[in-house]
Design a protein around this nucleic acid. Structure first.
Length: 379
DNA sequence: AACTGATCCAACCGCTAAGTG
DNA sequence: GCACTTAGCGGTTGGATCAGT
């Protein structure tokens, strides 16, 4: 029984007490954090029994996940995070949790809120949700049938991908009352390099126009490689006869299949390690090391983002949707090419897992806290 | 200063999947 | 196989805040 921070109640939870709703108090937060320290995550319904908190387990889990757990990144999304969200949304749809898995320290709720706000604003302004070089998967079109960014509708900005100005931060007249990142100059337009948000990323080529693959169960239509241009599924590698070293959309050589194989191997390895009794005993090591929690296997699998913390099933599905390192690299390349950020100097940060980032890339992913000069989540 | 609308964000709700006996 | 419990996900809501009028 954790009695922490006052307000202790003898007739605590599950004991006929009316569960409290509404905003959490500091004392409640402290109590919940103390509970997690002592008992670990999970078994949220026990919080009510073991503490004075009159909150349902669901509420406790949410509070922990969205506000109390370590290594959460608070504050506005960086432009790079925004781009990643858009890219991920184009591939995954409203799979906020999966998207959050790709954005270390961000919660599904944050991403969802961000996207919904953006959706609302863009729809009101008649702007497309996606830049022309991102073609949303079918489920997106079903989800937002009125999306103006269809081949038949004119775009409000230049179509060549190389000169596309990304409408994330509008000019002052269009800028919402709260710009997302005040540190980012509103006048700066997002001129993407031709490679960024590359529609022809391995994953993008998996887009399915087949409703069988694009609906429900939401494996995000990425289950089977699909070439929109050829109208065929690129199943060769999946059938084991493998020549798929070329992206049929672009004609460019890719290492997609090797990456997928790597992902499969990694997923299997992880699945083995996660065939532990309890479901989702995750994030326990998040307390320890930001990189181990988020980028734990980068070095071993060429995969920037780790699948750590997922159940085998999630591994399986997520691996199909996880951005390839190529995508991330391009994202980072774009970032380092950005006039706003590039200063022509570069140093290298090497993580313990041999993930090498130059300082631009590192800064993009982990902006230094202005106040503390500390990297978020890194002690 | 008061009002209004837009935006942000925390929290809740309902549903579903997974785990357990 | 079934019922029940637990955890997680996605949708929605409502209060707080801000900017414009």
């Amino acid at each position: 029984m954790i009695v922490y921070g006052g307000g202790a109640s003898e007739e605590g939870g599950g004991r006929g007490v009316v569960l409290k709703k509404g905003p959490w108090t500091v004392a409640e937060d402290e109590t919940l954090a103390a509970y997690v320290r002592e008992y670990g995550e999970g078994n949220w319904n026990a919080v009510q029994k073991k503490t004075w908190l009159a909150r349902c387990g669901k509420s406790c889990r949410l509070r922990w996940a969205n506000h109390l757990r370590p290594n959460l990144r608070k504050g506005s999304f960086t432009p790079e995070e925004e781009r990643l969200i858009i890219q991920l949304h184009s591939q995954l749809g409203n799979k906020w949790a999966r998207m959050a898995a790709q954005l270390p320290g961000r919660t599904d709720n944050e991403i969802k809120n961000y996207w919904n706000t953006r959706l609302k604003r863009f729809q009101r302004q008649g702007l497309p949700l996606y830049p022309p070089d991102i073609s949303p998967n079918n489920h997106q079109q079903q989800m937002y049938p009125q999306q103006p960014n269809t081949p038949s509708s004119p775009l409000p900005f230049p179509t060549p991908a190389s000169s596309f100005t990304f409408p994330l931060l509008q000019p002052p007249s269009l800028c919402p009352k709260r710009c997302y990142n005040t540190a980012f100059s509103p006048k700066a337009s997002y001129t993407s390099s031709p490679t960024f948000l590359n529609t022809h990323s391995p994953l993008s080529s998996y887009q399915s126009t087949n409703p069988v693959y694009s609906m429900k169960h939401e494996l995000s239509s990425n289950q089977i490689p699909y070439s929109a241009s050829l109208g065929v599924y690129q199943v060769s590698k999946f059938l084991g006869n493998g020549d798929c070293n070329q992206n049929l959309n672009t004609g460019l050589p890719t290492n997609t299949c090797q990456l997928l194989e790597d992902l499969m191997e990694e997923a299997e390895a992880l699945a083995d390690s996660f065939r532990a009794p309890k479901r989702r005993q995750l994030m326990e090591d998040n307390n320890n090391n930001f990189f181990s929690g988020s980028f734990g296997h980068c070095g071993s699998s060429n995969n920037l983002f780790s699948l750590q913390g997922l159940t085998p099933k999630e591994d399986e599905s997520l691996q199909m949707n996880t951005m390839q390192d190529e995508d991330i690299t391009k994202l980072l390349d774009w970032g380092s090419e950005s006039e706003e950020i590039s200063n022509g100097q570069s140093s290298v940060v090497t993580t313990e897992n041999n993930l090498v980032l130059d300082d631009h890339q590192f800064a993009l992913l982990f902006p230094v806290d202005d106040d503390t000069n500390n990297l978020p989540g890194i002690c």
